[in-house]
Design a protein around this nucleic acid. Structure first.
Length: 664
DNA sequence: ATAATAACGAGA
DNA sequence: CTCGTTATTATC
C-alpha cells in the first residue's frame, strides 16, 4: 500500500489517501515519485508519500493507476516543509507542491538519468536527515570540497569573520545582515555559501530578480569554481529548468541560487539559507498560499538547523523582529566603516532657490540636483531615479496648456492615478487655490509623461550628454563608466563598474504617500538600493534626495542608518498592533462570502476581526489580528473554515492570506 | 466526475 | 412495507 498526496485544490481533501500498489508497479512506486490515481472517478496526479503495510481506511482501496516516473521528486524534507508552510499560511499541501516542484520534462529526466552516473552520486555525501548537525570538519571524503575561504570583504564587519567560521564549523549561525553599500554583496554571499560548503552541507540563496541572480551567479563561479553551483530562475524554459532542478534534487549540486520559486529547492543537507533584499515584494509569492521567501527560508533554516543570512542594504521591520526575538543576530558594520563606503546624501534643498533656476524648472529637477549632476558628469554616469511609469502624471493648465507649477517653489505639479489633488513634485504640497499664471484659469488637465518626455527634458538641460533609460520591460543590466544620464525606475537601475558619480532620487513624496503600512520602509529601501550603486563619498559620490529632509525616513538615508529606522518602524507597529508585531490575516471576497466565512470561523482566543473594508471591484477585505504566538491557531481556524466551504461546494471565492505584505 | 448512501414517495 | 427514484455526500 502507499500513501498518496492527491493534487486536488479542495481544502477538506488536504490529507494523504491510501492506495494499493499493483505488483508490476511495486519496484517503481518509491517514496516521492509522481503517480496517477483515480480519485472520485477522475484520473488525477499525485505524489507517493511513502509505502505502508496497513491502511487506516475502513473502506475498499483503489489501486494506483500508473507510476509516472520512479524519480523521487518529493523529498522527505520538502514534503514536511510543504505541510509546515501550508499550516503557516492556511493553505493546502497541494498548493505548496505546485509551487515547489516544477512540471516534469520527460526528455530532461531521461537525459539526467544517463548523465548522473552511479559512481558520481555515490561520491557525494548521503542526504543527512533534516536536523542532523554536521560535525565540524566532517564531509564527503576525497578532498573535493573547496578550501575554507578567506573572509575577504567580510573583514569590514566586526562579526563577519566569526560568522564565516561558524558556518564552516557547521554551527548554524543566523544573522540579519545590513550590507555595506557598494558592489561587494554578491561576493559576500558567495563566500558565506563557500564557508557552508566547506563543512559539507549545501546552501540556498534567494534573490529578488534576474539582475541580482546574475551577480550572485558570477560571484559563486568565482569563489566556488566551475560546476559547483546552479541557478534556478524563471524564464529558463521547462527543459532546462527541470534539468537543473533534478540535479539539485539528486544531490549532484549543493549550492543553489535563484529567484523566489527556488525557496523550495530540495537542496541536500542544507547548511545555509540566504535571502537578499528581503523587503523586495518580489519575495512574496503571488499564488496560493502566498508564502514569503524570508519566512519559508527561516522555517527551513529552523527545520534543518542550518545557518541563515537575511539582509540587504536596507532593513525590514520583519528582519528586525527576528533580531528582537533573539532568533538572529545583527550583522552590520560600525559607523566609521559605513561612512567610508556610503555616498554623501543631501536633501534637495531650499524652495526659494529652486524657483529662480530656469534650467531646473525646465528639467523638472531642483537646482542643487542639477548642479550636482552637472559637476558629477565629469567623473562618470549620473543616475536619476523616477517612480514607475504610469505612477505619476504631470498636469498643465486646462485652457492654455501651460505646465502647472507649484506657486511656492516652482516644481511641476503632478497627479497620481486615483484622482487625488495635484501635488508638487518637489515639495509635495497641494495647492487647492491654484491658478494658471498665464491665463488665470483654475483647472488642470493631465499631460502624458513617460520616460521619453523625462529624457527629452533632461537632454535639454544637459546638452551633449547621452541619456539612457532603464525601466519596465526595457531594463538595462549595466552601463559603461562614462558620462551619461541614466534614468531608471526603482529596481531597474543599471549597474556601473566603479559606481555612479552621483544619483538624484526624484519624487520622494510619491513613494512616501502610498497608502501602505510599509510606505516609509519601502521608500528607504528603494532609495538605498539606488544610492548603494553610487561611488563612496570619499570618491566624490553624491546622492541628492528630493524629499522633505526633516522626515525620519529622509534622515535615515542621509545618515545611512537603516537599522535605527527599522527599529523605530517595528516599535511603531508594536504600538499599533500591526505585523510583524502581530500575525495578520486578510480574507478577501464578495461581501456576502466574506461575512459568511467570518461567521463560521471559530477564531482562537485573542484573535479579533479588526474590520471589513472595500477592496476593488465589488469585493471586500476583512483583516483579522492575532498575537504572534497564536498565528498557527489562527491559520488553523481559517483553514478549517475553508475546508467547510469547499466540502459543501460553496461556489463563492474567498481568498485567505496571512501577513499580506505591503497591502495593509 | 462517480459511486455509495440517505431520503423520499408512490403503489401494494 | 417495499421498490424505484432522486438528492446528498464523500472522494482511498
Amino acid at each position: 500500500m502507499a500513501r498518496v498526496l492527491v493534487d486536488v485544490p479542495l481544502a477538506h481533501l488536504d490529507r494523504p489517501f491510501d492506495y494499493l500498489v499493483p505488483e508490476r508497479m511495486a519496484a517503481a512506486a518509491v517514496p516521492g515519485c509522481r503517480v496517477r490515481v483515480r480519485f472520485a472517478g477522475q484520473l488525477t496526479g499525485g505524489f507517493l508519500l511513502d509505502r505502508v503495510a496497513v491502511s487506516e481506511h475502513p473502506g475498499r482501496l483503489a489501486a494506483l493507476e500508473r507510476v509516472v516516473s520512479p524519480e523521487p521528486v518529493l523529498t522527505p524534507e520538502i514534503a514536511a516543509l510543504a505541510r509546515e508552510v501550508a499550516d503557516r499560511y492556511a493553505g493546502t499541501v497541494a498548493d505548496v507542491l505546485r509551487l515547489a516542484i516544477p512540471p516534469r520534462h520527460a526528455a530532461a529526466e531521461a537525459a539526467a538519468r544517463a548523465e548522473s552516473t552511479p559512481g558520481l552520486r555515490a561520491a557525494s555525501a548521503p542526504r543527512s536527515a533534516p536536523g542532523a548537525p554536521g560535525e565540524p570538519g566532517s564531509g564527503p571524503a576525497g578532498g573535493s570540497l573547496p578550501p575554507r575561504p578567506e573572509p575577504g570583504p567580510w573583514e569590514r564587519y566586526p562579526a563577519g569573520p566569526a560568522f564565516l567560521s561558524a558556518l564552516a564549523d557547521g554551527r548554524a549561525p543566523r544573522a540579519v545582515w545590513t550590507a555595506l553599500p557598494g558592489p561587494d554583496w554578491p561576493e559576500e554571499i558567495a563566500r558565506a555559501a563557500a564557508a557552508a560548503a566547506a563543512a559539507g552541507p549545501g546552501a540556498l540563496i534567494v534573490v529578488p530578480d534576474a539582475r541580482d541572480l546574475g551577480l550572485v551567479d558570477t560571484a559563486l563561479g568565482r569563489v566556488l569554481g566551475p560546476g559547483r553551483h546552479a541557478c534556478l530562475a524563471a524564464g529558463l524554459g521547462p527543459a532546462e529548468r527541470y534539468r537543473r532542478w533534478l540535479a539539485v534534487a539528486r544531490g549532484d549540486i549543493r549550492v543553489v541560487a535563484g529567484t523566489r520559486a527556488a525557496m523550495f529547492a530540495p537542496v541536500a543537507g542544507l547548511g545555509l539559507v540566504v535571502v537578499w533584499d528581503d523587503g523586495d515584494d518580489l519575495h512574496a509569492e503571488p499564488r496560493a498560499p502566498y508564502p514569503h521567501a524570508r519566512e519559508v527560508l527561516a522555517l527551513r533554516a529552523h527545520r534543518a538547523r542550518a545557518g541563515a543570512l537575511i539582509g540587504g542594504f536596507a532593513r525590514t521591520a520583519e528582519a528586525t523582529n527576528l533580531v528582537a526575538s533573539g532568533w538572529a543576530r545583527a550583522l552590520a558594520a560600525p559607523r566609521d566603516v559605513v561612512r567610508r563606503f556610503a555616498p554623501d546624501v543631501r536633501p534637495a534643498g531650499d524652495d526659494a532657490e529652486l524657483a529662480r533656476d530656469e534650467a531646473a524648472r525646465s528639467a523638472r529637477m531642483p537646482s542643487l540636483a542639477l548642479r550636482t549632476a552637472r559637476a558629477a558628469l565629469d567623473r562618470g554616469p549620473v543616475l536619476v531615479q523616477v517612480p514607475r511609469r504610469g505612477y505619476l502624471t504631470a498636469v498643465a493648465c486646462e485652457r492654455c496648456r501651460a505646465p502647472a507649477r507649484c506657486a511656492r517653489c516652482g516644481g511641476a505639479l503632478a497627479v497620481e492615478a486615483g484622482g487625488a489633488p495635484a501635488r508638487c513634485r518637489w515639495c509635495g504640497r497641494t495647492d487647492p487655490r491654484w491658478r494658471c499664471p498665464a491665463c488665470g484659469h483654475d483647472r488642470v488637465r493631465a499631460v502624458v509623461t513617460g520616460y521619453r518626455r523625462t529624457a527629452e527634458e533632461l537632454s535639454r538641460a544637459f546638452p551633449g550628454t547621452p541619456v539612457v533609460v532603464s525601466g519596465g520591460t526595457a531594463t538595462l543590466g549595466s552601463v559603461p563608466h562614462r558620462p551619461a544620464l541614466v534614468i531608471a525606475t526603482p529596481g531597474a537601475e543599471p549597474l556601473v563598474a566603479g559606481g555612479y558619480a552621483a544619483a538624484v532620487l526624484l519624487d520622494g513624496w510619491v513613494l512616501l504617500g502610498r497608502p501602505s503600512l510599509t510606505a516609509a520602509q519601502e521608500a528607504l529601501r528603494r532609495w538605498m538600493n539606488a544610492a548603494a550603486l553610487v561611488a563612496p563619498g570619499s570618491a566624490g559620490g553624491t546622492v541628492i534626495l528630493v524629499a522633505e529632509a526633516a522626515l525620519p525616513v529622509a534622515q535615515a538615508l542621509i545618515r545611512w542608518d537603516p537599522v535605527t529606522h527599522a527599529e523605530r518602524e517595528l516599535a511603531e507597529r508594536e504600538a499599533l498592533g500591526f505585523p510583524p508585531a502581530v500575525r495578520m490575516a486578510a480574507v478577501t471576497g464578495s461581501a456576502a462570502a466574506v461575512a459568511g466565512f467570518l461567521a463560521e470561523t471559530e477564531l482562537p482566543p485573542q484573535a479579533e476581526v479588526i474590520g471589513t473594508a472595500p477592496a476593488g471591484e465589488d469585493k471586500v477585505q476583512a483583516l483579522i489580528r492575532a498575537p504572534r504566538r497564536g498565528g498557527l491557531a489562527l491559520a488553523a481556524a481559517l483553514r478549517q473554515a475553508q475546508a467547510a466551504r469547499t466540502a459543501r461546494k460553496d461556489a463563492s471565492q474567498v481568498r485567505v492570506r496571512l501577513d499580506p505584505a505591503g497591502e495593509i
